[in-house]
Amino acid sequence: MIPADETFDRTWPYPPHFTEAAGFRQHYVDEGPRDGGGAVVFLHGEPTWGYLWRHLIGPLSRERRVIVPDHMGFGKSATPADRTYLAGEHIDNLEALLVDVLDLHDITLVMHDWGGPIGTGFALRHPGRIARVFATNTVLPLGLPGYDKLMAENFADSHWFRWASAAHANGTLEQTLGGAGSSVTHLMLALQTITRPQHITPTWVRAYAAHFTDRAACQGVLRFPQQLVAPDPDVTPAPPDLDAVAALRAKPAVLVEGMRDTALLPRYVIPAFQLAYPDAPVIELADTGHFPSEDAPETLLALLHLFLQTT
């Protein structure tokens, strides 16, 4: 767990907030006006934390309330030893924060990577609290026909998932991800793709590696891919409520897609999004990889501003 007061050479100037509502010490950022008519909630994925959104938090919070949680096992949140770290558990944690602690309504979900499934799971439980959906290089599992086929094709084709599957088969997945403090830059730069490597400074590396101090601190970063390459046959997610799916599909939505992503491939992610939102805009960023907020933060911020203003 990263120390609460760590700013990484002032690149992360946001005061920390903590809650134990979900049974562990969870960190979140809470910036901006409380009477701004709803909140923008940023959800990170693998192997990042709230630092992923650092360029967007400050400008956006001048006008709107901004909430940025760190998932269990990432960033400044704790890594309890007695948890499964399955997606459903992360959804429970998000629900405890957004509903029980903050009681948020009129939420704009901004989701990246595993933030998409986690945010979608929360939204299906509370569609009335969701105002709009902003997806970037992620997927939104709503149980629609054709989605599983697209995800299976991505799994077979993706550089990241082919590596994870092979590493699981030969026994090196836990070794590599259990040492994420040393391997996180390679995971992000090579297996998921960052197209502006000049941004990878010593401070940047330290920020993304800092949580993963030892094997015990790497449960979160390991379990995300592990539950896909080695799913528990006894864990079968319940199908989503059809009324909740319909309510969520009626919300304004947009996909901003970094087209050089080598983890979630655009040729599968875009049609998967369009299954749910056939009339919603899809904005392709040609020279951006898996992390648009790293490769093109100014563009992503402008698109988010536009989306908020026009919906």
Rank of each mutant, 00 (worst) to 15 (best):
Q192R: 10
T288S: 07
F291V: 10
Y268N: 08
A209N: 07
E6S: 04
L56Q: 14
G73I: 04
H55K: 12
W160Y: 14
P252R: 03
S77H: 08
F122A: 04
Y51Q: 01
Y208W: 11
R64M: 04
V229D: 00
D148W: 10
L275M: 01
A131L: 05
T19G: 03
G88P: 05
T7C: 03
Y268E: 04
R10W: 12
R162F: 02
D113P: 05
V29W: 05
Q227A: 12
V133Y: 08
L308H: 11
D243M: 12
S182N: 14
T7A: 02
P225W: 12
T203L: 10
P239V: 00
F134W: 05
Y147P: 00
G45Q: 07
V269R: 05
G119V: 09
H305G: 05
P127K: 00
T120N: 00
L60H: 05
I194L: 14
A167H: 10
Q274F: 03
F161V: 10
H90E: 09
T262C: 06
K251V: 02
R215Y: 12
R249E: 00
F42D: 05
K76D: 05
Q175Y: 15
V68W: 06
E294A: 11
W160L: 04
R129S: 04
V254L: 02
E63F: 15
L285D: 01
P3N: 13
W160R: 03
P127M: 01
H105L: 10
L94Q: 07
R65S: 03
D157K: 10
T48S: 14
M72L: 09
L104Q: 09
R83L: 08
E257R: 04
G220E: 00
L189G: 08
F155W: 07
V66Q: 05
Q175H: 14
R132N: 05
P233C: 12
H168L: 14
W12L: 08
V269G: 03
A207I: 03
